[in-house]
Simulated assay, not measured.
Amino acid sequence: MSDNWIVQNLQNALDTWNAKITEIWSLVLTSPKDFKGGGIWTAIENVNSAVQAIGLALLVLFFVIGVVKTCGSFAEVKKPEHAVKLFVRFILAKAVITNGMELMLTLFNIVQSTIGTIMTSAGLETATQTVLPDEMVTAIENCGFWESIPLWAVTLIGGLFITVMSFIMILTVYGRFFKLYMYTALAPIPLSTFAGEPTQNVGKSFFKSYCAVCLEGAVIVLACLIFSLFVTSPPMVATDASPVTMTWAYIGELIFNMLVLVGTVKMSDRIIREMMGL
């Protein structure tokens, strides 16, 4: 690394960005069962088991409500076709509640396979590192004291923006895990609504929302892939420009691309929900 303070400041900011991008690439392929050693998943399993009792109680309630609203009289309930239909609905709803974690984990693994396919098809299985162009480093190192003063301001502001955006990116990915855990822990309650025909839309909406959270990983990966392609073709550096102009132009375009990436990742939930019509 260069001994120049300005170059070091910029490179340190880029190192933070590269580290967070690399962490994101590994996190989007990590299962909730393995995240942070699996300790969180164990706690979520315990919560889910405790909430199952509430879900089974609600199952009976929603089943009775469904019978009352869908059958005009008790005579209709006694009809074999109605009785079988209600019985099958009740059994399936109970199975969904008791096996909800396995079902949700299966859906997650399907989405993870899709994400892995996207990464393999794009030919980028690792994060592309963002580095300073050699010609810009040389121009900065050749600056005198007075000429380097405006560069300090440019690099301080640019480095701060890059560092902040890197943490926003990683927080968004961590937030996805929080949502996955919350959906899994409380799943028995919304899943119990499948017991009644009038309330089944709640359960359907729950599954759609959960799938949307899972698919956020695909949007994050695609956004990072597009950004990686920008990084492999870095902004053109005008070698005949002054070091300040050269640095400002490079940092400005780099920050713009980063802002687009961060904005896309932050809106991944909205993008998926619009695609799914939620």
Rank of each mutant, 00 (worst) to 15 (best):
K94D: 12
V88P: 00
A75D: 09
F87I: 14
F74D: 02
R89F: 08
K94S: 15
L86F: 13
P80E: 13
I65G: 01
H82S: 03
E76N: 04
L92H: 02
G66C: 04
V68F: 13
K85R: 11
G72N: 10
P80Q: 10
I91N: 01
K79D: 03
E81R: 05
G66L: 01
F87M: 14
V67D: 02
K94C: 15
S73C: 01
T70W: 13
G72L: 11
I97G: 02
I65Y: 05
T98W: 15
I91L: 10
K69M: 15
V77M: 03
I65K: 04
F90C: 04
C71L: 15
V84Y: 03
L92W: 08
K78A: 13
L92I: 14
V88F: 04
G66V: 06
A75H: 05
V77G: 01
A95T: 12
A93W: 02
V68K: 13
V84P: 00
A75G: 05
S73E: 01
H82I: 13
K85N: 06
S73R: 08
F87Q: 10
V68T: 11
L86Q: 08
V68R: 11
A95H: 08
H82R: 08
A93P: 00
I65W: 09
A93V: 10
E81N: 05
A83S: 12
K69I: 15
K69G: 09
F87N: 07
P80T: 15
L92S: 02
V67Y: 06
C71P: 00
F90Q: 00
V67C: 08
K94R: 14
K78F: 13
A95I: 14
T98N: 06
E76I: 08
H82N: 07
V68A: 15
A95N: 06
K69T: 10
V84K: 09
I91V: 11
L92M: 10
T98S: 08
K85F: 13
F87H: 08
H82T: 11
A93G: 00
E76L: 07
R89Q: 07
C71A: 04
V84S: 07
V67Q: 07
H82C: 06
V96N: 11
E81H: 02
